[in-house]
Amino acid sequence: MSARNPVWTHSLPAALWLMAPFDILASLAMDIYLPVVPQMPRVLGTTPAVIQLTLSVYMVLLGVGQLLFGPLADRLGRRPVLLGGGALFAVASIGMAASSDVPMFITFRVLQALGASAMLVATFATVRDVYAHREEGTTIYAVFSAMLAFVPALGPILGALLAGGWGWRAIFIALGLVASLALANAARGWHETRPIRADASPRHVGRVLRSLRFWTYTLGFSAAMGTFFVFFSTAPRVLIERAGYAPLAFSLTFATVALVMVITTRWVRRGVMRWGEGGCLARGMGLLVMGAVLLVAGQWLDRPSFVTFILPMWVSAVGIVVTVAVTANGALKAFDDMAGLAVAVYFCVESLLVGVAGTAVVLVLPGDTAWPLIVFPLGMAVVVLLALAALQRREQPAS
């Protein structure tokens, strides 16, 4: 009997139409309400620090939740985990819109993050099941991973438009409605892809964690996503409070980073074919370092502005896309028989590193300056490049 479930006949465009909404929603929910963060403490009767905490809580739970949903996806299947997570995300989003105090808001934010976690693990496990050994795999990994990076850059502008037209609650109502539509589409078209002989035992997590390849590429993913997390955590204070940007102007400026990512996504497949996974990872880390160095120059030479804060982030944005185009495939290559668990550990490690280390640099260093956005990518890039060098030395004899 084949080890693979054969029931997946969608063309690549149809598969993207089916799966991409869940990837997009999980990413959008990270920071779509960023433009209304300054007014939410007053609305919910709390402090700015608590509202900031809801950004970090989402990031951490997005990964930690996958330690539950990954093994479930290997044991029960991708489809039930996807549908259950989508339903939880939709209900929680509507609950956030209905919240009148901060405990209620945080409760539904936790549930929203868990729903997003289930959606992500089911989506990426399905991608691994279907496309790991097909030519379209490079494209779909690049598109989905890049979405995780650049969709949050579009979130604030969408949030500003929704809040400006219908108030802040409209942001979460919109998330709930879109999730419901995506869920209805998936209920009709998302067939089960779990390998017939998938090994669902959580005890095999040690096999994943002992892999140097897994750690090298997962740390690369963490460096890329963490750089963007620190960017959207510091950007409101730098651009709105210090540079004097209005919320809509801030959102439009923020969205230029997404535009750079979208443009980069269009040619990144050629880069992967030319440089390979290791070459792309090294170049991605180099671009993160270059962006950080430019931020240092801007921090010393002038006050925060488009030129000194956003333009360096464009360089980092290219590095983020080049990196995330290869990290999932690079990290998960050896774990086809336990894709759900491996994907879960991959996202859990990334979310913990980003949520803990990213939040730490924002809290410890001046959050209204570029220093958090300088220190995080520099430190992470050095670690990743050292790990990559060790991995290449280890794999050289085999090649």
Rank of each mutant, 00 (worst) to 15 (best):
L209H: 08
L181K: 10
L25G: 11
R210C: 07
V354Q: 03
R283P: 00
Y33S: 15
V296W: 00
F144Y: 09
L388W: 03
V375N: 02
A98G: 13
G358L: 04
H133K: 14
P156L: 10
V296E: 00
A92E: 06
A246Y: 00
G286Q: 05
F231L: 12
L281C: 11
A317W: 03
A224Q: 13
V60L: 08
G367K: 01
L120V: 15
V321D: 07
M119Q: 13
V343L: 00
R266P: 01
A113G: 10
I173T: 06
A223S: 15
T253H: 09
W267A: 12
L177P: 10
G355T: 05
M313Q: 10
R169N: 13
A26I: 08
L158R: 05
P236C: 04
F309S: 06
A15S: 13
F376K: 05
V127I: 15
A243P: 12
A334C: 07
T47W: 07
F150S: 13
V318P: 04
A90E: 02
L67P: 07
L175H: 04
Q112R: 03
A249R: 08
M285W: 08
A113P: 13
T359I: 05
Q39R: 15
M273F: 10
I171Y: 04
G63T: 14
R79Y: 09
L209Y: 01
V238D: 03
L161C: 15
I140K: 01
L16K: 08
L148N: 15
A317D: 09
W300E: 08
R269K: 13
L239G: 05
M119D: 11
L44E: 05
V205P: 01
F89D: 09
V230I: 08
L239Y: 04
T323E: 02
L341W: 00
V345I: 15
A20N: 06
G65V: 07
R134D: 13
A97S: 11
F221E: 02
A255W: 00
A73F: 06
P304E: 04
